[in-house]
């Protein structure tokens, strides 16, 4: 295990107000020893990237249940690339149809967790990816 704790940004993008999943995941990551920066609601892609760079995180966890994921998530990956920060991994949780999952993963999202995923799985995934 690394000495320094992992730093993770957990954010709600778009106008969606359903933050139960984001908060539960944030708390679980924190309980697993990670440092979590929770952004709260109504973040734009630009705000997410800005906060992620400022806070020097290794992981961005985005929660979205409104269906706007196809418009809001690819720009985040794109902006990270432009800022030479493609090493930050982006994971997504929410109501995401199967074919959109395929698209998002082809466009730089590391993993998508749909309803019913366990926080253990999410923690395990992040640790595997970064070790």
């Amino acid at each position: 295990m690394a000495d320094k704790p992992l730093r993770v940004l957990v954010g709600k993008i778009g106008l969606d107000g359903h933050d139960r999943g984001a908060k539960v995941v944030a708390q679980a990551l924190r309980d697993a020893g990670m440092e979590v920066i929770y952004t709260g609601l109504r973040q734009t892609p630009e705000q997410i990237v800005e906060t992620a760079l400022q806070e020097d995180v290794q992981v961005i966890g985005l929660s979205i249940l409104s269906g706007a994921h196809m418009q809001l998530i690819p720009p985040i990956v794109e902006m990270l690339r432009e800022q030479d920060s493609s090493d930050i991994i982006v994971v997504v949780g929410g109501i995401i149809p199967r074919e959109d999952i395929t698209y998002l993963k082809e466009h730089g999202v590391a993993e998508v967790f749909t309803p019913g995923s366990s926080t253990e799985d999410i923690i395990g995934f992040i640790k595997r990816k970064l070790n």
Binding site: G14, L15, D16, R42, T44, S66, G67, A68, H69, M70, Q71, L72
Partner: peptide, 11 residues
Amino acid sequence: HPLARGEVGKV
């Protein structure tokens, strides 16, 4: 509105 990006007609 700029903040409506991706959200129009969704939910």
